[in-house]
């Protein structure tokens, strides 16, 4: 039986889709059969971030309505074996994700895949609730910024109250904090909440710290999960987070500002 992971945050723009793409790619790279699903009905974007927008024929709603089979809608990634993308629909009807339909799709996917990564829409409406309902694990994507932390706290409350596991009184959804767009330099200056601050406020175990990095935009520009960029610090950080998720011990990186040697400081700046 596959494990369902929801990538959620409450707040928009914190990096849910980037994280879903990187995480699913990371799991597949390690040999796990993985599918990543876009739950943002009406605002499809995972296809762009994954670079398969021109290969979308059928979507989630088509499958739920019986207009296409699951296998017709699943897009096989061209770069990574074991990775599939399940695009959402561009319909304006946000309530098109019907409960029974989604239940059936998730059951089928659990039988076929090891990991099912659900990219949640922002907010706490139908789409977001549907995305988190089936979760066995949740990755709470949070920026070190007050509105993001508050919204994450809200989503944690909703996971504890409205998930299938909560409803059926099973063991609770496994929760992980992923701190994104982190800038150790700004934390040092006292301008940004630190990892410790956010951990303390949300009391969640930390899965990883993704440093603020221009390579994230570069990756989405070209439709490549950032984890595939060997030169990207954010990509390395996602790789660590995936390893920790499946039980490996990895030391936290990007907690402190990078030490620059004097020479690199002078010449590096002139060069860049």
């Amino acid at each position: 039986m596959g494990k369902v992971i929801v990538v959620t945050s409450g707040k928009g723009g914190v990096g849910k889709t980037t994280t879903s793409a990187a995480f699913a790619a990371g799991l597949a790279l390690r040999g796990h059969k993985t599918v990543v699903i876009d739950f943002d009905v009406g605002l499809r974007n995972l296809d762009l971030v994954m670079g398969c927008e021109r290969r979308v024929v059928f979507d989630f709603i088509n499958v739920i309505n019986g207009d296409a089979t699951l296998n017709q809608a699943l897009i096989r990634d061209k770069r990574i074996d074991n990775l599939h993308i399940f695009p959402t629909s561009q319909t304006r009807d946000k309530d098109a994700l019907k409960r029974e339909g989604v239940d059936w799709v998730m059951r089928e996917l659990r039988n076929e895949f090891e990991y099912i990564v659900c990219d949640s829409p922002a907010g706490i409406e139908h789409g977001a609730l549907t995305a988190l309902y089936h979760a066995d694990a949740a990755i709470i994507v949070t920026n070190p910024e007050i509105s993001s932390v508050r919204d994450s706290d809200r989503i944690i409350g909703i996971l504890a109250a409205k998930s299938r596991r909560a409803e059926k009184r099973e063991s609770p959804v496994e929760e992980h904090l992923l701190l994104t767009r982190y800038s150790p330099e700004r934390v040092k200056k006292g301008e940004m909440l630190s990892v410790e601050d956010v951990k303390e406020i949300l009391s969640l175990p930390l899965l990883g710290i993704i440093p603020e990095s221009p390579t994230v935009l570069k990756a989405s520009n070209t439709g490549m999960p950032v984890i595939l960029d060997p030169a990207s610090p954010a990509g390395r950080a996602y790789e660590d987070a995936v390893a920790r998720f499946i039980g490996e011990q990895r030391e936290m990186r990007f907690v402190l500002p990078e030490r620059r040697s004097l020479l690199r400081g002078w010449f590096g700046r002139a060069a860049s």
């Binding site: 910024e145 508050r150 006292g190 406020i201």
Partner: peptide, 24 residues
Amino acid sequence: PASASVAKERLQIVLAHERSGRDG
């Protein structure tokens, strides 16, 4: 005081309040 510590304090106060209104 550094703005980050102001942020932390404000969050702790508002979240303590919001959590008390939650289910359960």
